[in-house]
Design a protein around this nucleic acid. Structure first.
Lengths: 312, 312
DNA sequence: ATACCGTATGGAACGCGTTCCATAGCAAGC
DNA sequence: GCTTGCTATGGAACGCGTTCCATACGGTAT
């Protein structure tokens, strides 16, 4: 490894001057700059980022915690972060969490250790209180409304889109709405919000036997539809948590020569377009971009992003 | 920031002893270890990764160059890398290249600067010769067969799957095969390989007016089908470069009440399953895992991964 | 008693770029 | 002629964990 001191010696200047020349900071004569430049080219020297990071006390890395990349929410938010980070000369470290709280704590510790300058949680298993407590280790951004917790946040304003969706469904005259959700263990914030919005619109909670939990894939949707068709009470409309899932639901009806009930998906995916399903686009890419900007600016602000109802 | 020297002072030992205690290396008495442990807990001390990286001359980061994440090839390879890296306690830095050679050169420079320990190219715009030349800056892994270039590589053995696919198509009696490819600018390695395999199987190159270039999305597929239907020579079978694209092709025929020709996709995606299309699964996840292991082990080997023809 | 070894610990240098502070030449201003 | 103020440059310390090497003590082998 060639170092700045070697460059300095060969150029006949001090490391300090070489450093200034490289970073165009402070005073360097044209003659010195030229000589140093020549030596740098000759030795193929580039400064060592680790040393630079150490002396500057920062890496240009943001960590992004993602449970997995199999869901459009994550790929879209992540993409937004990536694009914004790239534009700001940051690198993005992708941290898989698998919804495991201990893994997430590990990433908080990496933040503490200065492995990255900021940490963005696209989702989380650990409580917000722990995230808030870890803020002393560096900027932490979450992608949901953190309520009163002193956390920076960028998130899709799903509530308004859900409202619009449910109003539209209601206006069409449907009353027995099948619902699918991804998390099965406990009710996630998204699930709770959907249910609350549903209750507000329809005046009552959905029928328990029309709610399917733990549904994340095409196959899960297929399975959910199967469950529904084997019971007395059946949905006359299905509001699912993804276009791919809606496609799975539809497939079950098709495969069994049953009338497919009207469906609404989410995420504005290819499968939804393919099947002409109405959907909700939560604009997760914008959420990601906003999250990055919060990370880089170290602001502790809330950035809600409007979601969009797409009818077809 | 609390440092190891503070811990040392408070514990009544030297930084060297504290370092040994933390890393369980060298000799530390039980008494010293206990005392140091207590002080670490009291101060909430964790070592600074940047300093550790500097003194050890490595980060535990691998950079992964990806043009974008909109294509299953990249998401799958990337996922394989991510999973393997996680298991080995490495972090993955995602580097967007947009098929831009200068961006890729920038990432090579980052490797030179020691921003990561190794660099994996899932695809590339710069010539292999440049990659090979940059090996002096650190391990570089490509995800294609590098031929005689001294580069580590993990890649899907597409040729055998293409052969199987074309033989199957031929055995079915089809002779006018429509083909779609993603890159339009110049013929990529994949495109060339597909065409070569085609020629070997059928004994001649595909008809020029049945080859569509620059096709990467559902909409592009739709467009390609449109072009074909407006010309004299029409395909009796379509071999496309993705299930999503095949879906787009099909959609055009459906929308225009035309008979949909039999289709084959690639990537084993949801849309293909949805439509019951035969497809090729290139096992890109395994490619990613293999690429990571090459990166971590610094071996300069070739790891071909068998692709699989899925008929439905 | 002497040599030798394992255990324990600390001092200091190292990795490498950055930056604060001091020194010095030189020109413009009074 | 002297002060003021740039322009230039270098020495040295800093950031912080690691590691080499030296020192020292208690015990065992001879």
């Amino acid at each position: 490894m060639t170092t700045i001191r070697e460059v300095a010696k060969l150029a006949g200047y001090s490391p300090a001057t070489v450093s200034r020349a490289i970073n165009h900071s402070g005073y360097v004569s044209a003659k010195a700059a030229a000589k140093i430049q020549a030596v740098i080219a000759q030795l193929d020297y580039v400064p060592n980022d680790i040393a630079r990071d150490l002396s500057q006390g920062r890496t240009a890395n943001v960590g992004v915690v993602v449970p997995h990349l199999n869901h459009p929410y994550f790929t879209q938010v992540f993409n937004g972060i990536l694009t914004a980070a790239f534009a700001a000369d940051y690198n993005v470290v992708l941290l898989q969490s698998k919804y495991d709280a201990d893994l997430e704590r590990g990433y908080l510790e990496q933040l503490h250790r200065k492995a990255f300058d900021a940490l963005i949680f696209t989702s989380r298993a650990i409580p917000l209180s722990e995230l808030a407590a870890a803020r002393k280790y560096g900027p932490i951004i979450c992608c949901e409304d953190p309520g009163d917790y002193p956390l920076a946040a960028a998130y899709s304003q799903r509530a308004t889109a859900y409202q619009a969706a449910f109003h539209w469904i209601q206006a069409q005259g449907y009353r027995h709405i099948g619902l699918t959700f991804s998390r099965s263990d406990k009710l996630s914030a998204t699930t709770r919000l959907t249910l609350a919005t549903y209750a507000t619109t329809f005046g009552h909670a959905p029928a328990a036997d029309l709610v399917a939990l733990g549904v994340t894939t095409f196959a899960d949707g297929y399975q959910a539809a199967q469950t529904w068709t084997t019971q007395a009470s059946q949905p006359d409309f299905i509001f699912s948590n993804g276009d791919d899932i809606a496609a799975g639901i539809r497939q079950f009806y098709v495969d069994h020569q049953l009338t497919v009930p009207p469906l609404m998906g989410q995420e504005n995916q290819l499968s939804g377009r393919l099947l002409g399903l109405p959907t909700i686009d939560h604009h997760f890419q914008q959420v990601g971009a906003a999250a990055f900007h919060l990370a880089a600016s170290r602001q502790v602000a809330h950035v809600p992003v409007a979601a969009e109802l797409i009818l077809r």
